[in-house]
């Protein structure tokens, strides 16, 4: 019995050491700049999109981002999800012309419809690179889901520009950014204070602009989010109730087993 027990103890100690080593090594890997956590209307199980912020964010996308970044998975009709009316969406779409084939078979242009995808600023990736000094601006349709840190990361990049620390060698045409991996980003600082004029009187500070456009982009990446969470709450409550009932039935069924 004795050797068995001591072996067991040794095994337990070995297991504990192994576990401790695993856990200790974990934080060593967490690196890169700390992300800001500005707090979002859409976080948490009951979070919803702040419609006004998302609409201001759309304005930023339209006036600033859309010069280089596409939003090709989204449709103009999706804008109804941030509170635009059908007429407003039609007007937004109609202000853009998209390529089509005319009745004569030749390439032509027509005003966009709500059913159209957002028009991309460049015809293709090569055209984008040619126009932008070799850099390819990523599509923003799911950018919030495509980056570690999500909204916090995008917000962090937009507000993370500054002077490089002394001694840091910057690449040609590169800009310093606290949050961007490697701290060198090809995109020049896109947002400045007072970059846009808000019609609702909100003061367009840099933080405000970044906050608004990230709210908009989070909506574009997760247009289903609000209904997803609403359904989710109902499903969880239903399952909790069902678990309770089933457990009571189980106790009753098993009550005669000894």
């Amino acid at each position: 019995m004795r050797p068995a027990l001591s072996t067991a103890r040794a095994g337990g100690q070995f297991a504990a050491t192994l576990l401790a080593a695993t856990l200790l090594a974990a934080p060593a890997i967490a690196q890169e700049g700390q992300l800001p956590h500005p707090g979002w209307s859409f976080s948490g199980p009951f979070g919803t999109f702040d419609r006004a912020a998302a609409q201001r964010g759309f304005q930023i996308y339209k006036e600033v981002c859309s010069n280089c970044h596409s939003l090709k998975e989204a449709y103009y009709r999706n804008l109804e999800g941030i509170g635009l009316s059908e007429e407003q969406v039609k007007a937004v779409a109609a202000s853009v012309t998209v390529p089509t084939i005319g009745d004569d078979g030749q390439p032509a242009e027509r005003p966009a419809l709500p059913s159209d995808h957002f028009k991309s600023p460049f015809a293709n990736d090569k055209a984008a690179r040619a126009a932008l000094n070799g850099a390819l601006p990523p599509d923003l349709s799911v950018i919030v889901k495509a980056r570690e840190g999500g909204p916090d990361y995008v917000y962090g990049v937009l507000t993370g520009y500054g002077e490089p620390p002394a001694g840091m060698k910057m690449g040609d045409g590169m800009n310093y950014n606290r949050v961007f991996p490697g701290h060198q980003i090809a995109m020049p600082q896109p947002l400045q204070a007072d970059q846009v004029q808000y019609s609702d009187g909100t003061k367009p500070t840099l933080d405000q602009e970044a906050h608004d456009v990230v709210t908009f982009l989070t909506f574009i990446a997760n247009p289903e989010m609000e209904s997803r969470k609403q359904i989710g709450v109902k499903i969880i409550l239903f399952l909790a109730m069902l678990t309770g009932i089933t457990y009571v039935v189980k106790r009753r069924v098993w009550s005669d087993v000894h």
Binding site: A10, A15, A16, L19, I29
Partner: peptide, 25 residues
């Protein structure tokens, strides 16, 4: 099985540790 029981848990921890290792460079 006292010895096997201890080794079983070592084995579980080893598998979890391997999971962590796989996630890192």
């Amino acid at each position: 099985r006292p010895i096997y029981r201890a080794l079983f848990w070592v084995h579980v921890v080893a598998c979890i540790a391997l999971g962590f290792v796989g996630a890192h460079r």
